[in-house]
Design a protein around this nucleic acid. Sequence first.
DNA 1: CTGCTTGCAAAGTGTTTGCAGGCCC
DNA 2: GGGCCTGCAAACACTTTGCAAGCAG
Lengths: 156, 156
Amino acid sequence: MAPDSVREQELAVALLRRRGQRVTPVRRAVIEVLDQTTEHLAAEEIVLRVARTVPGAHRASIYRTLSSLSEIGILTHTHVAGAGAVYHLTATDRPGGEAHAHLQCTRCGRLLDIPVDALRGLARQLDRDLGFELEPEHAALMGVCADCRAASDRTG
Amino acid sequence: MAPDSVREQELAVALLRRRGQRVTPVRRAVIEVLDQTTEHLAAEEIVLRVARTVPGAHRASIYRTLSSLSEIGILTHTHVAGAGAVYHLTATDRPGGEAHAHLQCTRCGRLLDIPVDALRGLARQLDRDLGFELEPEHAALMGVCADCRAASDRTG
DNA sequence: CTGCTTGCAAAGTGTTTGCAGGCCC
DNA sequence: GGGCCTGCAAACACTTTGCAAGCAG
C-alpha cells in the first residue's frame, strides 16, 4: 500500500475522532476500501470488500457507517439511476482524487467523471439567480455518451 | 378540463398509435393524470391517482406503462434522491410545460425547476469536449436551496 | 463505566417479472 | 383472431429500524 494511502486513511480517522465519533474496525475498513480505489462503489460492493478484512461486518453497520461518514464529509455519495448510491472518498490532494462531477449515460448506464470546473459557470449562475448553492461533486447529469451516440448513428 | 388538455392527451394517444402501441384504459388514465398537473409525480402517486378513474388498475401495469411511455418519449422521468423516479409529460407547447431541468436540495429534498437554457452552455461544452449529449430535462443537480442556506446561516 | 456502534432479523420502499387470461386493433 | 397488455402474486434490489450486547474512549 502506498504511503499516501496510509496518510489519507489516518487523516480520515483523525477527522472522525475530532468529531467525537468512534474509530471502529468497520469504519476503518470502509475507509480503507474506498481509499484503495478511485472507482465509485455501490454500498453492496463495499459490503463485499469490507467482508474480506472484517468477516463479521454486517450490512446494516456498513450502511450506517456510510451514512455517518457522509455526514461528516469524509465520503461523498452520488445517486445514480438503477444502482442506488455510489460512494467515494471526498476529494483531497491525493493523486487522482480531484473533485469531480458525474455524467451518466442513459443508454449504457456508464458513469463518467468530469472536472468540477466544467460546472463552475453554472454554479455561479444558480447562486446569483436563485440563491442555490450547487454541490458539483453531488451532481449526476444524464445524457448519451459518445460510444452510444456512435452506435445509434450506425443503427439509424 | 381545459380544451388544451384534451388536445394534449389526444396528441399523446395519437403518438401511441403511430408507434404501433395499443391505447388502453390504463394508458389513457396515466396520460390524463400527468396532463392534469405540472407537478412531478412519483410512480406511487400516479398509481393512487389512476385508481380514481380506473379502479382495477394494477401497480405493475402502471409501472409498465410508465416505462413504455418514457421509451416513446411521451413521458420524461427524473431520478431523485430518496424518492425513486418522478414523471411528467414531455414538454410541449402547453402552458407551463416548457422544458426544464431539475435542482434538488440535499437538505430538505425539495425539487426546483430551472429552464433548460441554464444548461445550454454546459451542454455545448460537454458535446464539444467529450461527445456527450446532455439531456437537460433528465438532469438532477444537487445542492442547497436558498431557504436551507438561510436556515443554516441562522444556526451557525 | 457510559453510551455510541454493532450484529441480527425483520420490515419498508420502490420496482420488476412470470404467467394465464383479456382486450385492442 | 393474433398478440400486446393487464391483473395477480411473488420476487427483487436497496436501505432502514428496533433491540440487546459489545467495545471505544
